[in-house]
């Protein structure tokens, strides 16, 4: 059990090297019981590696990791008993039913058959899957599989939950259910490390976030703190039919291009710009029009965690 006041997860100067390449470079953060910590970063930033070390699946090259008070390097079994892991990819047996999957993983947590049945029922109920519990997982929709994937990580109410992008590709209904379930776990005192590259999702769900990029921690704090620290006030999205030149805002003060425009999607490209004040918005629109790129949409909104990430790293979180 986690002693009072001690973090449920404590990562200190964590280093992971693989094949001569540094995957994690002195990563450090802590998660308190009942806290939802977002682990944010683009694909390849090191989020899954961090979760792998916490789940004792990967051996760290340096640093210290303690989970529920146990050293992950020396007391892996105790760490495993303390964590509930929801992997990024669906990790279920497709030929077993939802109930069979849940009971199987419950039994492997070391509980008896009756307790495993109860835990499975509770978990299935928490993700609203009791109605399909006896269907094979292969017949589930992607969202149902995500929910079951989450449920199998919650079995036995472990004090630490490691969630690796548990909402990838889910429908809004499933997302809502998953978020509710996660909040309920935190409310029950579990420490949650929630890895995602969906900034808005993290902004809504997480108490704090750790921004990680290329194996390094860029920033840690609440979403509001991070947005503020990034110095991004307003954000302008300009959708054009044709691409804008890279230097289309080169000599305009108080304006920074966060994204120059990604690949064409549905006949349009979106460039994201941070502006220091609302007065700069018309100037940006003028420049876009002058580029003869055929502006399709022009939107001004408050800066988000995503914008802060762009400002801090210089690239989008989904790169």
């Amino acid at each position: 059990m986690v002693s009072a006041g001690a973090p449920a997860i404590a990562v200190d100067r964590l280093v992971v090297d693989r094949d001569g390449r540094r995957i994690l470079d002195e990563v450090g953060f802590a998660v308190a019981p009942g806290e939802i910590m977002g682990l944010l970063g683009p694909n390849g930033a090191g989020k899954t590696t961090t979760l792998g070390v916490l789940a004792t699946l990967l051996r760290p090259s340096g640093g210290a990791v303690r989970v529920a008070g146990h050293d992950a390097a020396t007391d892996a079994k105790a760490v495993r008993a303390a964590i509930g892991r929801v992997p990024q990819d669906i990790a279920l047996y497709p030929r077993l039913t939802g109930r069979e999957n849940a009971r199987f993983f419950a039994r492997l947590r070391g509980v008896g058959a009756a307790a495993a049945r109860r835990a499975a029922e509770d978990a299935l109920a928490s993700v609203d899957l009791l109605g399909r519990a006896d269907d094979r997982v292969a017949t589930y929709s992607g969202g149902m599989q995500r929910r079951l994937n989450l449920a199998c990580g919650l079995l036995g109410s472990p004090p630490v939950l490691l969630l690796d992008e548990p909402t990838v590709g889910v429908d809004p209904q499933s997302l809502e259910r998953i978020v509710a379930t996660i909040r309920a776990q935190a409310a029950n005192g579990a420490a949650l490390l929630y890895s995602t590259h969906h900034m808005d999702e993290a902004e809504q769900l997480c108490d704090r976030v750790v921004l990680i990029d290329r194996g390094r921690v860029i920033a840690t704090g609440t979403p509001r703190e991070l947005v503020a620290s990034a110095g991004v006030g307003l954000r302008v999205d300009v959708a054009t039919q044709r691409p804008l030149r890279a230097e289309w805002l080169a000599d305009l003060a108080g304006v920074r291009v966060l994204e120059t425009g990604g690949p064409e999607r549905a006949g349009r490209r979106v460039a994201t710009v941070a502006i220091d004040s609302l007065e700069l918005a018309p100037r940006v629109l003028e420049r876009a029009s002058a580029e003869r790129a055929n502006v399709l949409e022009f939107r001004v909104q408050r800066a988000s965690l995503h914008d802060a990430f762009l400002a801090l790293t210089g690239h989008a979180s989904r790169d």
């Binding site: 699946l57 892991r85 990819d89 669906i90 990790a91 497709p94 492997l108 947590r109």
Partner: peptide
Amino acid sequence: DWGTFDRVRALPV
């Protein structure tokens, strides 16, 4: 491929 191997490895087994 199913991810179940790592999932089971992360359990106290």
